[in-house]
Amino acid sequence: MISSLTGKVTHVGLDNLIIDVNGFGMFVNVPPQTASSLRTGEQTTILTTMIVREDSMTLYGFSEPAEREVFDLMLTVSGIGPRIALAVVAALTPAEVSKAVATGDDKAFTKVSGIGPKGARRVVLELAGKLILTDQDSDQLPLSHDVAWKPQVLDALMGLGWTERDAVAAVDSFVEANPQSETIGVAQALKSVLATLGSQHSNTRH
């Protein structure tokens, strides 16, 4: 598999480029921000992921390792193909993706063309626990709040009528107060958070 390309940029499109690597012109699909940062004639190195299918071999390129990681992880989500995965990288920074998954913020993914509300929730559920926060992300979001069951519990709470804001606050409060909460199952977590909501927000339920 081709994991990177180094050569001269011979063409730059809105979302693609061609790199001359030792006389071979390699066509690479890239996010618009990567394309806009490059100029024809300059030397560059692009990190790549190759998608091999029966009738094609397609390269997708990125300027940062975190962008490629997000792209590759998006491909593990059912119903997400390379086109939508690339659109996610174009619309959201790796930090924004990590934070959205960790906090169960599925609405962040509805900004991406091709992802509706159901698809966004599926992204959050299937990527829970898979994304590794960078040091910068860790400063913005305490790791103690990133537990595997959080998206499922948030989904259940909102299905029961709690607002997303109250649900997120209750889960974060419970996780912060219970360091061992990451070891419990979804059912026990839901029961415990419901008890917290019932005692602290009995007048906010809809």
Rank of each mutant, 00 (worst) to 15 (best):
M57C: 14
K130C: 06
E96W: 12
L14Y: 14
G25D: 04
L127V: 08
F24P: 01
D172K: 04
D166M: 13
V101T: 13
A169W: 05
M1R: 12
Q200T: 14
G104D: 03
S138N: 14
K111W: 02
L157C: 04
M1C: 13
D15F: 09
I18N: 08
V9R: 00
P117S: 12
A108F: 05
V153Q: 00
V88E: 01
E64G: 05
V147S: 03
L154V: 13
V168M: 08
S78F: 06
E164Q: 09
V112F: 06
R83L: 13
G159M: 06
V28S: 02
S192V: 02
S4W: 14
L38F: 11
T58R: 13
Q136G: 14
T6Q: 10
S37L: 06
F24Y: 14
P65S: 06
V12T: 07
G114A: 02
V186P: 02
I46C: 01
G23R: 09
P82M: 10
L160M: 09
S181D: 10
L92E: 06
V21T: 12
L75H: 01
T44Y: 11
A170N: 05
A91Y: 08
T134S: 15
K118N: 12
E54A: 15
G161A: 04
G119Y: 08
R39Y: 05
K111T: 02
V97H: 03
D137M: 12
E182I: 08
G129F: 04
V30Q: 00
L75T: 01
D72H: 09
G198D: 03
K111Y: 11
D146N: 08
V171Y: 01
M50A: 10
M57S: 11
N16Y: 15
T58E: 14
T40H: 07
Y60V: 07
A100H: 06
D106E: 11
T103F: 10
W149S: 01
N16W: 15
Q43I: 12
R53W: 07
T44V: 14
L197R: 01
D106Y: 11
G23C: 12
P142T: 12
G23P: 07
Y60A: 01
A156I: 06
V30L: 05
E164H: 10
G161Q: 08
D172E: 13
N178K: 05
L73R: 03
G13S: 11
D105H: 08
T44Q: 07
N29S: 10
T163C: 11
Q200G: 12
Q180H: 10
L154C: 10
H145A: 11
E176T: 15
E64P: 00
K130H: 09
L59N: 02
V193E: 01
A66E: 05
F71R: 00
Q188F: 13
M74L: 14
F27I: 08
A85L: 02
G159W: 05
E67I: 02
K130I: 09
V77H: 02
S56W: 10
V168K: 03
L38C: 10
E54V: 15
Q33C: 10
A167Y: 03
G159F: 01
G81S: 10
A177F: 13
T163S: 15
G13T: 04
D139M: 13
I18L: 12
I84H: 09
G13F: 06
